[in-house]
């Protein structure tokens, strides 16, 4: 049945800088919410015409399809180094690097830390869903203690596999980063907080203040073997215990 919107005003629509492409993510996956939030920030800051997004390797490899912005696809883990090259070559570009936990906090550890330590004037969005989604649900550096994955079938035993790495806390020990924060998307309040944080992080770059890292706790209903709603509850009740939400550094104000 068609919905009549005559004499009504649109209060929520698709961000201008999002393309019409349909997301390739699984039902309920937070990547889509996050993509919309980034597009909204790009719109509000009026920077679509000078933004370059970096698509990583993993489920978000298609990120170059989502924004009406220039984009480059980076090899696994190297997005922060690619961002460095782009920004150093052209400081007028707004460079947004989108990276998962395996990408940012495992294979790309060196590139991630050193881009932050150089205080590169870039924005890194670090999506932490505690698992390798695209390759079939293997253990990530952020996989929780006891969490079952396809490579920790009996649950992550810290004596054998080590503990989940709190990468944002590591980055927060450095002197250069201007903004390091951890956000989540499991309810509307958290989504609104994440919107503010991402806009702030990108605006710091626009103002030339330096490196920002926004870690976003995300879900993987498919590989967690949960419904989207159960996955949201899991983030709220369990994941945030291991990865507390909030700002770790804010030197931009």
């Amino acid at each position: 049945m068609p919905v009549n919107t005559e004499n009504m005003v649109k209060v929520f629509g698709r961000p201008e800088s999002l393309t019409d492409a349909r997301f390739t993510y699984c039902p309920g996956c937070h990547h889509g919410i996050l993509t919309r939030i980034i597009a909204k920030a790009i719109d509000e800051l009026g920077i679509a015409e000078r933004t370059v997004t970096i698509a990583p390797v993993g489920c978000s490899v298609f990120a170059y399809l989502w924004y009406k912005c220039d984009a480059v696809q980076a090899s696994h883990g190297r997005a922060s180094a690619v961002a460095t090259g782009l920004k150093r070559a052209n400081k007028d570009l707004i460079v947004i690097s989108y990276q998962g936990d395996g990408d940012f906090a495992s294979i790309g550890t060196a590139e991630s830390i050193h881009a932050a330590n150089r205080g590169e004037n870039i924005t890194v969005i670090f999506v932490n869903n505690q698992i390798y989604g695209m390759t079939g649900g293997e253990m990530a550096p952020t996989t929780l203690v006891g969490q079952r994955t396809t490579t920790t079938p009996d649950g992550r035993d810290p004596a054998y596999f080590g503990y989940p790495i709190r990468f944002s806390e590591l980055i927060a020990t450095l002197d250069a980063p201007v903004y390091v924060t951890r956000q989540a998307l499991y309810d509307t309040r958290r989504i609104m907080d994440a919107e503010k944080a991402i806009k702030k992080a990108i605006s710091y770059q626009v103002e030339g203040k330096g490196y920002s890292l926004v870690e976003v706790l995300s879900t993987c209903p498919t590989n967690w073997h949960m419904s989207p709603l159960e996955a949201n509850r899991h983030v709220a009740e369990v994941v945030t215990e291991a990865f507390p939400l909030g700002d770790l550094v804010d030197r931009g104000g």
């Binding site: 370059v52 480059v72 980076a74 090899s75 190297r78 180094a81 690619v82 961002a83 460095t84 090259g85 782009l86 920004k87 150093r88 070559a89 052209n90 570009l93 060196a110 590139e111 830390i113 050193h114 150089r118």
Partner: peptide
């Protein structure tokens, strides 16, 4: 830029080359 590694350097090169 003195990169953190040769891997860092080649990927910075990739980024700068992409910027034209």
């Amino acid at each position: 830029v003195q990169a953190e590694s040769e891997i860092g350097a080649i990927n910075m090169l990739y980024g700068a080359a992409a910027a034209g």
